[in-house]
């Protein structure tokens, strides 16, 4: 087995007096889909945001695709092209069309010409089944469509790892399916994914591994069947019981 594509060791994060991450180790293998669950304030989103250095870890090390992310000599903007990110609130650029949103980094970061960037952007939109919405502005799209455009914006750069930060929690229930379908197809194409989400059905069906975090630490991890079916830790049991009651 080749080495992990993403390797985070001993991550700590302080916000002032708040100690949000208390020594987290996370290894992700190529083509693996890792789910991170946990109560709000458990540090799961902070962990994800450290993995592309949107948050600066207070201590620890992160290597992605062989690049030491925290090394001063690393060009973080170059490294970030290998790490796609999808946000809870989509964060599409409202003044650009779907195509413009996807093409921006292809042009400005990768330096491609307009024609080539737009061709690649169309391909990416096609992968999330929104090729026919290329000329629409975010305000003219549903939340689910916006999130799929956001996925296209990330995958157009051909990242090695994709990070999803609660990608469906801002969506109306009837729009969740389309986003999960896009994520499933991405997974089937062999993308390595780290997903912070409470979509248990999706986790059961698609995840290789589920990580439960609480209080800034990883409490327990394992295959979805084990974590959801027979959690070892009391805190995991309580949390999963809570989630299942909410979704019943």
């Amino acid at each position: 087995m080749p080495g992990p594509i993403l390797e985070a060791r001993g991550l700590h994060k302080h916000f002032g007096h708040l100690h949000v991450l208390k020594g987290v180790d996370l290894l992700v293998q190529e083509r693996e889909l890792v789910f991170v669950i946990g109560p709000s304030g458990s540090g799961k989103s902070t962990l994800l945001r450290c993995l592309n250095r949107l948050e600066e870890p207070s201590a620890g090390s992160i290597t992605v695709d062989g690049i030491d992310l925290l090394d001063r000599r690393t060009d973080i903007n170059k490294a970030r092209q290998r790490i796609g990110m999808v946000f809870q609130s989509f964060n599409l650029y409202p003044h650009m069309t779907a195509l413009g949103n996807v093409a921006l980094a292809l042009r400005k970061v990768q330096g491609r010409g307009r024609a080539e960037a737009e061709a690649r952007a169309r391909e990416a939109l096609d992968r999330v089944h929104l090729a026919d919405r290329a000329g629409h502005y975010p305000g003219q799209l549903s939340g689910g469509q916006q999130q799929r455009v956001a996925i296209a914006r990330a995958i157009a750069l051909e990242p090695r790892v994709m990070l999803f930060d609660e990608p469906t929690s801002a969506l109306d229930p009837e729009l969740v399916g389309g986003v999960l379908a896009a994520m499933r197809e991405l997974r089937e194409s062999g993308m390595t994914m780290v997903v912070v989400s409470h979509e248990m059905g999706f986790a059961r069906a698609a995840a290789d591994r589920v990580i439960f975090m609480d209080g800034g630490r990883i409490v327990e991890q394992g295959p979805p069947a084990a974590i959801f079916g027979a959690p070892q830790e009391e805190r995991t049991r309580a949390f999963i019981g809570q989630i299942e009651r909410n979704h019943a």
Binding site: N52, L54, N77, K78, R80, Q81, I83, G84, M85, F87, S89, N91, L92, Y93, L104, A105, K108, V109, Q110, A150, R153, A154, L157
Partner: peptide, 11 residues
């Protein structure tokens, strides 16, 4: 979030 999205793509 607009800045974060842009920075996450390498801008």
């Amino acid at each position: 979030g607009q800045t974060e999205a842009a920075r996450s793509t390498g801008l």
